[in-house]
């Protein structure tokens, strides 16, 4: 079981470790594409990494509506809890 704080911290680590995103650029409101220079291929890697945290399979289409860092956190949280409920 992970709360949103855990998920946010893991996402932050993934962004810094995998993509060398400057840590200070990351905030819940930061836009993935415009602010953090994340592209669609990176998004697949992020999905895989977040899957390792929650142990739940994440489908790329569930990432479609995502624009901000907080959207990723919310989506992962929703998935993790929906399936364990």
């Amino acid at each position: 079981m992970h709360d949103k704080k855990d998920i946010y911290e893991h996402l932050q680590k993934v962004l810094v470790d995998l993509f060398e995103v400057p840590a200070e650029a990351i905030s819940p409101e930061a836009l993935l594409v415009e602010d953090l220079d994340i592209d669609s291929i990176d998004a697949v890697d992020i999905a895989v990494e977040m899957q390792e945290l929650t142990g739940r399979k994440i489908h790329p289409e569930e990432f479609k509506e995502i624009e901000r860092v907080q959207d990723v956190v919310d989506a992962v949280f929703r998935l993790a809890n929906a399936e364990s409920a």
């Binding site: 995998l18 993509f19 060398e20 291929i41 990176d42 890697d45």
Partner: peptide, 8 residues
């Protein structure tokens, strides 16, 4: 394993 970094 560092595809993201290397592609950048």
């Amino acid at each position: 394993g560092l595809r993201g970094r290397m592609s950048r």
